[in-house]
């Protein structure tokens, strides 16, 4: 599945400044693996050593926070937009 991923400012050093990039994968986990092959190092910024989403990262598939869905196993339909957003905002 071809998806587009919105990249937060602090990860744009990996995407040469691009704020939106393309990737492939049938699940969020696969998309993140694919991003790693294109932008080496980016996965370990988003996932912790155990391979889980870091606790201060929010990831949305379409409009939904993946923690309300299936986390890294959340399916990513063709053309869907994924957003990676720092979680430490709000109040």
């Amino acid at each position: 599945m071809a998806v587009s991923v919105r990249v937060p400012t602090i990860l744009r050093t990996y995407t040469s400044g691009e704020s939106e990039v393309g990737a492939e994968g049938a699940t969020l986990g696969e998309v993140i693996d694919d991003l790693e092959t294109r932008y080496a190092g980016i996965r370990s910024r988003v996932l912790d050593d155990a391979g889980a989403l870091r606790r201060f990262v929010n990831v949305y598939v379409g409009n939904d926070d993946v923690r309300f869905l299936d986390g890294l196993a959340t399916p990513t339909a063709d053309g869907v937009q994924i957003s990676i957003i720092p979680a430490v905002a709000g109040g």
């Binding site: 937060p8 602090i10 050093t13 910024r45 870091r54 201060f56 990262v57 720092p86 979680a87 430490v88 905002a89």
Partner: peptide, 11 residues
């Protein structure tokens, strides 16, 4: 800046 570039943690 508000999120750590290493781990997304709060600054």
């Amino acid at each position: 800046f508000y999120a750590c570039t290493e781990c997304f943690g709060p600054l």
